[in-house]
């Protein structure tokens, strides 16, 4: 469906490298997540995909069409929601939707079936100006506008940034339902915990793709075993662990530390040591890495 081959993109006459030799394959009907922090190159990648930017080198094919020569046809087949909220704040919910339907050569009625589930939730406020909507409602309206012309591919640039956890969950559920209708969906996000909701993910940092795979495969490719080390005095525990010679890596994860050790490490001994140092509540156990663990490991091994 979408193929990126060796895409490179720089800004400011080549001084800022935004995408460095990116290659990607995205299959039809997938929910694909592009995951990385701000400034990783997510927006640039999406803008190239939506034909809004030209790459410096490399080729990209969307739906069998070249992004440079066939840009008009590609533009007809995608629905795009840019980063930042971008609807007309001074137009009402209905006016916004009607406007976008019209410029995409369609009507609200024609594709109502597709947006119905989502639109129904904001319909009570259809006469309210978009600028006066709450974050979650704005997001739903933006999604409706991106969907109104029944696109084959839906591209969402950081739709959940700055949105609270509850609205984020709702949003991902909407995406899952849309996927069932046959859409190919691309989402970018800085939230690593959203990775597991995707069929396939690409981890991106500093313009480089660190890994592309199904989330569980990325997890199973984690190098070594990951241990959760837990104590109430977590900060002191971290300081102590970092001086431990067998330690390979250690990062705070919520109420625990996630650490990797040399293969020869004796964990019984380690626990006993820590106990003696005053961590009476010490708890060490092997755990399955999260995407965030994998991301950190990949970033560090790429340095």
């Amino acid at each position: 469906m979408i193929t990126f081959s060796n895409i490179k993109k720089t800004y400011l006459k080549g001084t800022v490298l935004a995408l460095d030799d990116v290659s990607l394959d995205i299959n039809k009907g997938q929910l694909f997540g592009l995951i990385g922090p701000d400034g990783a190159g997510k927006t640039t990648l999406f803008r190239i995909l939506t034909t809004l930017l030209l790459p410096d080198s490399g080729t990209a094919i969307v739906n069998g069409l070249d992004i440079i020569t066939d840009y008009k046809k590609i533009r007809d087949s995608i629905g795009y929601m840019p980063g930042k909220f971008s609807l007309y704040q001074d137009l009402s919910v209905e006016e916004n939707l009607h406007f976008f339907a019209t410029i995409f050569n369609t009507t609200i009625e024609e594709n109502y079936e597709l947006i119905k589930d989502i639109y129904i939730q904001i319909e009570p406020f259809k006469n309210r100006r978009a600028g006066k909507l709450s974050g979650g409602m704005k997001q739903k309206l933006a999604l409706c506008c991106a969907l109104i012309h029944n696109p084959e591919i839906l591209i969402l640039d950081e739709p959940t940034t700055g949105v609270d956890a509850v609205s984020r969950k709702e949003f991902w559920e909407m995406l899952k339902r849309l996927k069932l209708k046959g859409l190919t969906i691309l989402v970018s996000t800085p939230y690593m915990d959203e990775a597991n909701l995707c069929d396939q993910i690409a981890l991106i940092q500093n313009g480089k793709i660190l890994s592309v795979d199904e989330p569980h495969k990325i997890v199973s490719n984690f190098d070594g075993k990951l241990y959760s080390v837990k104590s109430a005095k977590i900060f002191q525990l971290m300081t102590l662990l970092k001086s431990y010679p067998d330690l390979k890596s250690c990062f705070a994860f919520g109420d625990a530390l996630h650490a990797t050790f040399l293969e020869t490490t004796n964990y019984e001994e380690l626990a006993q040591n820590l106990l003696k140092k005053g961590f009476e509540d010490i708890e060490i156990k092997e755990i399955t890495p999260s995407i965030e663990d994998c991301f950190i490991q990949l970033v560090n091994s790429n340095k």
Binding site: G36, P37, D38, T161, P190, Q205, N300
Partner: peptide, 10 residues
Amino acid sequence: TGGVDPVTRR
């Protein structure tokens, strides 16, 4: 820490 990468966030 909004949007900051996981390593720097820590």
